[in-house]
Nucleic acid binder design. Structure first.
Lengths: 228, 228
DNA sequence: GGCAAGCCGTACCGTACGTTACGGTTCGGC
DNA sequence: GCCGAACCGTAACGTACGGTACGGCTTGCC
């Protein structure tokens, strides 16, 4: 471990779950991580150093020089993908009910799309597998770029909705978690456990709309009779 | 593999996700599986055959004779624990709103208790890890004894509530999934990913009550103005 | 007592894989 | 053209672990 992005430096990753997406990766390194990612998605847990080296057409020596050890490679791979996941960014300036509803629906749809993707499933699986055995940085990375990133984007929208008198809730965090539950339901755990559960574009759209309607029914401001 | 509960018989487990809890386990075998379970919960993924044998004070030869191979032992362990998990059984005969609400709250509380237990987390982790690599029977077992068992118990209650004019929904499955989402929210995925998230008795009770209220707000029959 | 079956403890085997080492090749700088 | 750095491909090493074999001990049966 001399030079290069020292992914295994304890002081860097262990204490700080904050993600530094710009870890100064060269294009070649990104290509290697992409190869590792593809392998992870396709082959499941068969992510051996030899396989990654072969897939990326690089030598194992290079992998070790760049990433320290297997855990470093895994962490770098997860961070690399995580840095690419972005759900809709919405400005909370559209103050009417229609645009708020549309924003929520967009968030819901994006999120369902993410958690049902092969990549997300593979990443969560590997992070969960590693969460059991000591070093839990992978889990923290996934959470930070998944559930918490979503919250960070959605909460301002909720707050804006409240400011505009469209939403009514006491705590933005709690409201977010309710929305999260209404959107995700049992989808993620079933997919992670290997349950076949095909989500087409159509069903995702429907689910997003349903979740949004339910959330508004729970937290929409009571301005007169709500009927339809 | 001669005699004994042939856990690895393809024809038994592969095609049939239904659980046969009474697999004719001797007391000694149960004790061994309990030891394996404890090891799984305590040591995470360090569930080697040698470790199980030492912990259970039995020989590896016996493990292989009884369970076929490592996967068989794992499957037997998961099934053994799964057969012990039981959430509240409720008869749908208490037809008033108070008892329905109490039943739902009980289900919610039990479920939160289950998914936040060390045992459940460990089991789900190992099942998810294995779901990535081929044979997914573990995931099916966990799902069948977790989420699907819950649905099987809760749906009759929902149907009874609808019959009694207390609930209003089109599809029991969809209604159940909404309830599931309101109860679980992000708890399970966060725990699986290693997020510290202490759930005390008190918070679980509060969460169960909140989820129940929200569910009733969404699916309670509209009999006059709802305003508390 | 004699015997067979079941099981414990342990040594052993084969392999997979993480990790290291090394020869050969490419490439930028002078 | 020459040099060193970076990197590829591959061989080699060490170890952990799944799986097997075997000697000795206990137990139930005759």
């Amino acid at each position: 471990m001399t030079g290069g992005p020292a992914f295994r430096e304890k002081s860097v990753l262990h204490s700080v779950p904050e993600i530094d997406t710009s870890e100064a990766l060269t294009e070649r390194q990104k290509a290697v991580l992409d190869a590792a990612l593809r392998l992870l998605v396709e082959e499941g847990d068969q992510l051996t150093m030899t396989a990654v080296a072969r897939r990326a057409s690089c030598s194992k020596e290079t992998l070790y020089k760049w990433f320290g050890d297997r855990d470093g490679l895994l962490t770098a791979t997860v961070q690399w993908q995580a840095s690419k996941v972005r759900v809709a960014q919405v400005d909370g300036k559209g103050l009417d009910l229609a645009s708020l509803s549309a924003s929520l629906e967009r968030f819901a749809s994006d999120w369902l799309q993410v958690i049902s993707s092969d990549t997300s499933i593979a990443l969560n699986r590997v992070a969960i597998s590693h969460a059991g055995s000591g070093k839990d940085n992978l889990g923290a990375v996934v959470l930070e770029n998944g559930r918490f990133a979503l919250a960070k984007r959605l909460k301002p929208v909720l707050e804006a909705g409240r400011q505009a008198g469209l939403l009514d809730f006491a705590d933005a965090e709690t409201a977010f978690r309710t929305f999260f539950g209404l959107v995700a339901r049992d989808v993620q755990i079933r997919l992670l456990l290997g349950d076949r559960l095909e989500l087409t574009e159509a069903t995702i759209g429907g689910d997003a709309a349903r979740a949004t309607q339910q959330f508004l029914a729970l937290h929409g401001a009571k301005t007169g009779p709500q009927g339809l």
